[in-house]
Design a protein around this nucleic acid. Structure first.
Length: 852
DNA sequence: GAGCACTGC
């Protein structure tokens, strides 16, 4: 929320809200409890000014504490890394930012996890944290660590009740399904039970998590419980960070890392047990893992190193998992959340209620809750996107002017992933005296972060999701209703610390119409990258693969067509039902990239510009490097800086320019810092100056520091892989046509030709589809004859994002080839469907088991 | 001249 300076960008322009009503320059008739009132954007009243002043004061307070916390973190890490070279320090800082933006890690706080609460008040009372048996011996490490362990006493957890049963099942079952709600302790205790049951002697216990924060914080927590240091008996492995050793017995990992490991060692024989946590989330990676591990288990069955699988889930999909894993046993663990009172909108009472204008409803609801709920109970609001969130935050701040004198002050705090880390941190600050914090969030607060002190949840019932349209290869970003499970999850966020309330801005009848569960990711994304990995593991026919929820046939074919056209796979039988990796496809697998992006690198090697290609492709993996429009800059200044990097050749070359500029800056900065170090400057002041210089550079050039660092780490990772692949490093200098050709070849499926009559671009592989260049692109005004884009996004129109000027001759042969393959492909698909229809169900099942 | 949720290797 902007306090000083100009109004937020959304306010300056006319915009349509979801009901189609125009909100003009912030002026909107707000009717609260029947009393209409006009908040004029042009005439800020006195109450409004005093609000700003008040807020400014409170802001100051908050920032004060933040600085102190950050300083402490900085000092801790400096102690650990004083002998590091200064260039390494960027890494240290990144780590700090990651930890700082994750939920506070105390011995009491648990990882962000899924919750499942009933929609009616739950009578279960949470266990009081009582001192219980300390199951593990005390550590004998450094004195500092000893102090930490002595303080630690694990509270009793619901899972303790079924400990004996779990131990028994672990000893006898090959696959086990553990269903446990939030707070049951399954994520921390089940791996430890495995160790105690003696399973870990044959091999490591792997625990997979869908998010990095979860893997890291769970590992830290379990390390404390087991009385070992992190990276000792308990470790974690996420991208860019491997904190494990030869002593490690329990390894927390992100599911993507386990998939990568499976590509290198398909039997995963280092691990005796793999525990898949949060399986109910149905992330792409966990679905693929379950598919692979089932195969893996079959192959290791009967050997002296069988694979044990534990599927952990928070919701009722047990039946589905049970059927998938051959009637595996299910152990139920009760959860430990506080009772939550759920209120739905009742149209009979709330006469003015309109189901579509949820932004307006939100403001009304916050006001109602604010005036009726006890002071000090913070509110968490779920909305769909940044624009909405900023709008509500603004209106709530204005609401303060009309509150009764005795009422507390409303402190709106936006929270979404694209927000700068320091802004995100405000959501975790303690609420100032005399205020009520209202966090207005996207679904980031559903699972990824846990905010303390929330007692009331307001749920719009909406979520923005991306779905892949296989027929046109288009990503569609749209607002949808949440699922029932998601609504429960959101409600559960009110019951973390104490009994809570949830207000749903939809009727009970609407809720009944919602889907039961979230749509699994595998059903709504491009499958080409996944299939490439599975083919590396020996899969030949994706149509015959046993998924929990099989993707649509059309979607599977689209991925096969894409991979074939990119030259990553080729058919091995005449009816094109079986495929195998080509040599090039094998190389693609080594890179953590989509097949298209890997193809750019492959081509760049031929063209002699691999260095530049790696920089560009790495930058393409992160969110926008250039973050124009940040609040303290004027439009003219944003334009000026944007022009500095813009090139006529397109947005990919612009990315390269930004990366090269920052590289130069870092070279100079490092040289200067090294020189300063010779004059005996203290480490601390050097580091401060170093970080300040980076901050200033990023601010001046409107570069997102976080994304820049992520990009640079990806660049290092890609370089490392290229070295392992014996790639000859080459650079094209100022001859950008080489790199443009490599990009064109990699993204040839996205090449377009300008249609002057329509003033739009026609997709060369499918001229029926016309698109517009997104206005954020450097090429949106120059309109060259031929372009490729990175991504096509359907919002209000069909927009091409990240566009580069190309030569049509570079892509024409590839497009001709693609059309040929597609023609055959369609014919073969029709033929195959005929065959499948003929197959008897029984025979079909046998075949399914025989092929992978 | 638009305005984009969230993860992950």
């Amino acid at each position: 929320m902007k306090i000083n300076g100009k109004f937020p960008a959304w306010k300056k322009k006319k915009r349509k809200d979801n009901d189609g009503k125009r909100i003009k320059n912030g002026t909107k008739i707000v009717s609260i409890n029947g009393i209409s009132r006009q908040n004029g954007g042009q005439e800020p009243n006195l109450a409004m000014l005093s609000v700003k002043k008040k807020k400014k004061l409170r802001k100051k307070k908050i920032n004060g504490t933040a600085t102190i916390q950050m300083k402490e973190e900085l000092m801790n890490s400096t102690v650990q890394m004083t002998n590091g070279v200064l260039t390494k320090k960027t890494n240290i800082e990144l780590k700090q930012i990651i930890t700082a933006s994750s939920p506070p890690k105390t011995t009491q706080s648990m990882t962000p996890k899924s919750i499942n609460t009933n929609s009616t008040p739950i009578s279960k009372k949470p266990n009081v944290a009582t001192p219980s048996k300390n199951t593990e011996p005390k550590p004998k490490n450094s004195p500092r660590e000893d102090a930490t362990y002595e303080k630690f006493i694990r509270p009793q957890l619901p899972i303790d009740v079924v400990e004996q049963q779990l131990m028994h099942e672990l000893a006898s079952q090959e696959t086990l399904i553990v269903i446990g709600e939030t707070g049951s302790g399954k994520s921390t205790q089940v791996p430890q039970l495995c160790v105690r049951a003696g399973i870990a002697e044959k091999g490591l216990i792997a625990v997979t998590e869908p998010r990095r924060v979860a893997a890291v914080s769970l590992a830290s927590r379990v390390a404390v419980e087991m009385g070992t240091d992190l990276g000792g008996a308990v470790g974690y492995h996420v991208r860019f960070e491997n904190v494990t050793s030869h002593r490690t017995k329990i390894e927390y990992m992100t599911d993507g890392i386990v998939l990568r490991k499976a590509l290198v060692s398909p039997l995963l024989d280092k691990y005796s047990t793999v525990i898949i946590d949060e399986a109910h989330e149905r992330s792409l990676h966990s679905d693929v893992l379950m598919c692979i591990l089932r195969k893996c288990q079959a192959q290791r069955r009967g050997t002296d190193n069988p694979l044990r699988l534990i599927i952990m889930s928070a919701t009722l999909q047990a039946d589905k998992f049970q059927a998938y894993f051959d009637n595996a046993k299910v152990v139920l663990v009760s959860g430990r959340t506080f009772p939550i009172e759920v209120h739905h909108v009742n149209p009979k009472i709330n006469k003015s209620f309109s189901a579509t204008d949820y932004v307006y409803n939100t403001v009304i609801c916050v006001k109602h809750v604010h005036l009726t709920e006890p002071k000090g109970h913070d509110i968490l609001v779920f909305l769909t996107g940044s624009e909405e969130i900023e709008a509500v935050a603004y209106q709530l701040a204005e609401l303060n002017g009309s509150l009764p004198r005795e009422a507390d002050f409303i402190l709106p705090v936006p929270l979404y992933a694209a927000l700068r880390p320091e802004k995100q941190r405000e959501a975790f600050q303690k609420t100032p005296q005399g205020a009520r914090k209202v966090i207005i969030s996207t679904n980031i607060a559903e699972t990824s972060v846990t905010i303390p002190g929330i007692r009331v949840v307001i749920d719009s019932g909406k979520v923005k999701t991306k779905r892949f349209e296989a027929s046109n290869r288009i990503d569609v970003l749209k607002v949808h209703n949440v699922s029932k499970a998601q609504a429960k999850q959101r409600a559960g966020r009110a019951g973390r610390d104490a009994p809570g309330k949830c207000y749903r801005l939809y009727t009970r009848e609407d809720f009944q119409k919602f889907d039961a569960e979230n749509m699994p990711e595998i059903l709504r994304c491009n499958l080409s990258a996944t299939f490439l990995e599975l083919m590396k593991l020996g899969m030949k026919n994706p149509h015959r693969l046993g998924w929990i929820d099989p993707p649509e046939s059309q979607n599977i074919d689209a991925a096969l067509l894409e991979l074939t056209s990119l030259g990553a796979i080729r058919p091995i039988n005449s009816d094109r039902s079986k495929f195998v990796l080509t040599e090039m496809g094998d190389v693609f697998c080594m890179y953590p990239l989509s097949p298209e992006h890997a193809r750019i690198l492959f081509q760049a090697q031929k063209e002699g510009c691999i260095m530049e290609a790696i920089k560009i492709v790495a930058a393409m993996q992160t969110d926008a490097l250039f973050s124009g429009g940040s609040d303290s800059k004027s439009d003219a200044e944003v334009e000026r800086v944007r022009r500095k990097f813009e090139t006529r050749e397109g947005d990919h070359i612009t990315l390269l320019k930004i990366v090269l500029t920052t590289n130069d800056f870092f070279d100079q900065l490092n040289a200067k810092t090294e020189a300063d170090a010779r004059y005996n400057k203290s480490n601390k002041s050097l580091e401060r100056e170093y970080n300040e210089a980076i901050r200033k550079f990023c601010n001046d050039n409107m570069i997102n520091e976080q994304h820049l660092k992520t990009g640079s780490m990806i660049e290092d990772q890609l370089k490392q892989i290229a070295i392992e692949q014996n790639v000859k490093f080459s650079t094209c200098g100022a001859d950008f046509s080489k790199i443009r050709k490599a990009i064109a070849v990699g993204l040839f499926l996205n090449s377009c030709e300008y249609d002057r009559q329509e003033d739009r671009y026609r997709l060369m592989i499918n001229p029926a589809i016309t698109v517009k260049i997104h206005p954020s692109s450097a090429l949106s005004r120059s309109k060259p004859a031929y372009i490729v884009f990175s991504e096509l996004m359907k919002t209000n129109d069909l927009y091409a994002l990240q566009v580069t000027l190309i030569d049509a001759d570079w892509v024409r042969p590839l497009i001709t080839e693609h059309k040929k393959i597609r023609k055959n492909h369609l014919a073969e698909t029709a033929q195959r469907i005929q065959q499948i229809v003929k197959v008897e169900p029984k025979a079909k099942k046998q075949k399914l088991n025989a092929t992978f």
